[in-house]
Design a protein around this nucleic acid. Sequence first.
RNA 1: GGGGACGUACGCUAACCUGGUAGACUACUAGCUUUGGGAGCUAGUCGUCCGAGUUCAAAUCUCGGCGUCCCCA
Length: 508
Amino acid sequence: MAKEDNDRKGKHEKEKADAGQFAEKAGKGSSKTTFSIDKVKDFPDWYDRALEVGAIVDVRYPVKGMNVWMPYGYAALNTMMSMMQEIMNRTGHKETYFPMLIPESIFGKERDFLKGFKGEAFVVTKAGTSDLAEKLYVRPTSETVIYETVRLWIRSSADLPLKLYQIVNMFRHETKQTRPMLRLREVAKFKEAHTFHATAEEAEAQMKEAIDAYKEFFDRLLIPYIIVRTPSWDTFAGAVYNIDFISVIPDGKAIELASVINLGQKFAKAFNLTYQTGENSKEYVHQTCYGISERELGVLIAVHGDNDGLILPPVIAPIHVVIVPIMKKGKEDALRKRAGEIRDELSKKGFKAEVDTREKGAGDKFYEWEAKGVPIRIEFGPRELETGNVVLYRRDKQMKVNVAQSNLAGQISEALEDISAVLKERADAYLKARIFHFKTSAELMEKYTEREGIVGLPWCSDEKCGRKLEEEIGIPTIGFVPDKKLNEACASCGEKGHTVEMFFGRTY
RNA sequence: GGGGACGUACGCUAACCUGGUAGACUACUAGCUUUGGGAGCUAGUCGUCCGAGUUCAAAUCUCGGCGUCCCCA
């Protein structure tokens, strides 16, 4: 990657040198659309600027943790959510909608859940000027409101399994610093699935299906992850256990991409979710739930972008190909017409293509579309009108090649595929470089000084040892790799034979 | 959870310390000339986060709110 960057810089230097007396002028516009911010060193700056220049969200709305989605960003988000819908529908989930406001009596039915969420839920206490008879909680997640109703839908085992999902907004009063998409007070798109099963085994099987569904989702988005099980002292409020998908942000902090939760029968008992098994016998259902949100788009942007802005994987890019016509006096009409034809041909073949006809300099457009992460740019000028070629520019490698117009669709299809492959390779290397493995906390303390990722230590599965390690190294647990035994001795008690790798990291 | 810094036009920034005409760049609007990596000229538009206090006078000093960023747990 570094090499390609250098290549590109070299090319630009050369172009500037060629421009002679103009080279100096070109340097002055430091507040233009691109930024050249070091993504790793100055991640917060990079992220804010990338979202602004990339037209993803507008962060200027004056309520903490609530952002405005701009059309370009929202298009990407919707594409992402459509992918998730497709996966959910294909795996037998039915889409629903449940209300946003939850009466206090329902919100508080499951004790652990109430304890976990009441501190950060918004509460509606008034209607106009008069106090409400019962407080209404704004959903921070929808377990309670869904289960209150679904218990009326489930009567016999014939009603099971029941697999529901909804895509809604949700609110949590985050007290920590908020960041667009990654930590919010209003999550605009929260996909939450809730499933109901007759037996624990079926619920367990559903956990596996959900994990596979999420694997597919993140793989298609080219988002790298590890899968861990959270330790018993850190599970979702009201859960038996949960499996988390974890990735790492360029600043070295871990981020939870998704949580797949086995709820057991705790909520079933609190909400009286039962089905009839005999003349006079009822059983409580077994439940799971799992969710993702726009956070995934934030991680995708953070993972794939470079120091010049966004790089959107083709699978999610609102525009695959932007055609920038380069005008020449007297040939405007011919250039515009042919550029439009090329766009139409590409659209017909299923590519999202656009012509940038705005009245501004070509160079300015180049920088803008690069910052917005459009995978491919086509440059089309008087030269191409003669030769029958076009210049094809790839955002991932920042390279230009000449290709024939006659074979453009084929070339673009190939290029998009290769861009995905390149991004995937980079993303995998990116995550690998941010995961560190140690055998003892002493070794960790000695070698892991920059804190630029997450760290793994062998752990014997005892809570005491886990908590002790957290304290020793001063980093909280994230979760351990399930079903994969290590040969190492526990980094805390030294016991051998049944250790697993426990990950620690600073988290979002 | 604890500590620190900051808030001036869409954006970036000057004036703030030492109270007294808010000034550049960028963007935007109109026109002309332009367009192969951030075009030029001319003429314009837009601003002191909110509230209170001190004062003849507040962008500037004080307090509160809201918002933003950073560091530590």
